[in-house]
């Protein structure tokens, strides 16, 4: 049913991700781990077309952009993972003509039923975040499942019951939890760090939150960087005695 779950049926639980743009290093580990898990999980397969050709193309549920922002001493490169935000009021769900795109009442996860999706692609048009990727081969829409087949999976160790992207992140830039519970670790982190919504003006109330890069320390408050001791004498022309020795050897040998 593509009507959103009625308020009475909702548990108040809003599972989602918190992504720390301060610590993300853009290593793509989350994207690769996502692809690896999900190509054989709920959304299987995540088809690749011409994976070894000049123009490889395929379905990925998590994409990592890099942006440059700020000016002069505050300028920086920010790595920016982009995936489904599991919105509270997702238009991708309400536009679906078949009921294949739905939001779960029990935990707020937005899913596509691959058995009833007709591949009309309207949900991807309705999503401002580019979270949905159509599988041209399978003929249905694919999206982040928040690893619904991991987080409730009793066959996994308890510490592994988190989305694959969270498990893979080497800098702990990705956090998973219940953003509907103000006492949860993720909610506290968002409150602490000033987490924000992407494109709030769209009104879809994304559950996933992004933590802004911390401001750079200015020159005055920064600790002076210790300068390594010089090991070679450098003359006015910028060459060392060792350089001059090699130059002399080279000169003698080539004569």
């Amino acid at each position: 049913m593509t009507s959103l779950p009625p308020a009475a049926a909702q548990t108040g639980k809003k599972l989602g991700l918190v992504i720390d743009l301060d610590t993300c290093v853009g290593c793509q580990a989350c994207a690769v781990s996502c692809k690896e898990w999900n190509t054989s999980g709920y959304s299987a397969p995540l088809t690749d077309e011409k994976p070894y050709g000049d123009e490889p193309m395929g379905v990925w549920l998590n994409r990592i952009h890099s942006y440059e922002t700020g000016e002069e001493d505050q300028s920086r490169v920010v790595h920016f993972p982009r995936s489904c935000l599991h919105c509270e009021e997702p238009a991708c769900v309400t536009v679906c003509p078949t009921g294949a795109s739905y939001k779960r009442a029990e935990d707020g996860i937005v899913l596509v039923n691959p058995d009833t999706c007709i591949g009309c692609k309207l949900c991807s048009w309705a999503c401002p975040y580019g979270a949905r990727e159509y599988d041209y081969d399978h003929g249905v829409m694919k999206k982040c499942t928040l690893c619904v087949d991991r987080i409730y999976n009793d066959n996994l160790l308890e510490e592994d019951r988190v989305p694959a992207c969270v498990k893979a992140c080497p800098t702990s830039a990705r956090h998973f939890g219940d953003l509907g519970d103000p006492e949860s670790d993720v909610s506290k982190l968002v409150a602490d760090r000033g987490g924000y919504d992407l494109m709030p003006e769209m009104g879809y109330k994304p559950v996933n939150q992004y933590l802004p890069p911390r401001p750079r320390r200015d020159g005055a408050s920064a600790q002076p960087v210790p300068v390594a001791a010089k090991t070679q004498e450098v003359d006015a022309s910028g060459t060392t005695s060792l350089d001059r020795l090699f130059a002399w050897v080279d000169h003698k040998l080539t004569r």
Partner: peptide, 17 residues
């Protein structure tokens, strides 16, 4: 607004995913 990074001046994509 799309990236939330606009507060510190212009935002420019330097690498596509």
């Amino acid at each position: 607004a799309a990236t939330g990074l606009g507060g510190k001046g212009p935002v420019r994509q330097v690498a596509s995913p």
